[in-house]
């Protein structure tokens, strides 16, 4: 039986797709058979971030409407053998997605896979609700910024009300993934700190991803940033995967790096 995890946020542009790609890759590198489903119908991005946009033949809507089998639609990642993705449709709109269709796809995938990651679109409307409906766990991607925190709070409210788990009297397990964290600006009082965010959200922290130039570079190359060995973001995502698997890892990147004189003159942020 697979664990179904939704990557959601409410706010757009905080790093859901980026994180989904890296978390999925991280799980696959640890040996777990993982599939990622892109729920952003019409605005699909997961295939771009993974670098497999030229291999998309069939998509989620094709599968739901019976035009293709799951086997035909799934794309295997080149870098991690255990990682697959199911792209979203680009030409249709979100009304083509039905609850029954999504249920059937997830049930079929549950047989062969250990983890099913659902990359949610932004917002709280149908696409986001469909992505979270069958989830056992949720990764709440949040920027340390007031709008993002409030939108995440809203999404938590929806997770507690509009999911299958909630309707059966259970609970979707929440994990906080704080992305684009700039410890220098937090120290200077310009940015919300981890404590400020937790004051409002009170969700167990899964990971803290520092603001990093490597994210943009990796995205343009079509490589999930977790593969950029040595970069801060890669290390942070690997730690996040460990914590998702229940391991205890000390939190990094919370304090600003103590840089030497030369580094401050000539260095950037890795």
């Amino acid at each position: 039986m697979a664990k179904i995890i939704v990557i959601t946020s409410g706010k757009g542009g905080v790093g859901k797709t980026t994180s989904c790609a890296s978390l999925g890759s991280g799980l696959a590198l640890r040996g777990y058979k993982t599939v990622m489903i892109d729920f952003d119908v019409g605005l699909r991005n997961l295939d771009l971030v993974l670098g497999c946009e030229r291999r998309v033949v069939y998509d989620l809507v094709n599968v739901i409407q019976g035009e293709a089998s799951l086997h035909q639609a799934l794309i295997r990642d080149k870098r991690a053998d255990d990682l697959f993705m199911l792209p979203a449709s680009q030409t249709r709109d979100k009304d083509a997605l039905t609850l029954e269709g999504v249920d059937q796809v997830i049930q079929a995938l549950s047989i062969d896979f250990d983890y099913i990651l659902c990359d949610s679109p932004a917002g709280i409307e149908r696409g986001a609700q469909l992505a979270m409906y069958f989830a056992d766990e949720a990764v709440l991607v949040t920027n340390p910024e007031v709008s993002s925190v409030r939108d995440t709070d809203r999404i938590i409210g929806l997770l507690q009300a509009k999911t299958q788990a909630a309707k059966n009297g259970g609970k979707v397990k929440e994990h906080l993934l704080l992305t684009r964290y700039n410890s220098q600006r937090v120290a200077e009082g310009e940015m919300l700190s981890l404590e400020d965010v937790q004051d409002i959200l009170s969700v167990p922290l899964m990971g803290l991803i520092p603001e990093s130039e490597s994210v943009l570079k990796a995205s343009n190359k079509g490589v999930p940033v977790i593969h950029e060995e040595g970069s801060d973001a890669s290390i942070a995502y690997k730690d996040a995967v460990s914590r998702l698997l229940g391991e205890e890892v000390p939190l990094k990147f919370v304090e600003p790096e103590k840089t030497g004189f030369l580094n401050r003159m000539f260095g950037g942020r890795k």
Partner: peptide
């Protein structure tokens, strides 16, 4: 029990 979330 717990916080009352935005929108609730």
């Amino acid at each position: 029990q717990g916080a009352v979330r935005s929108g609730q």
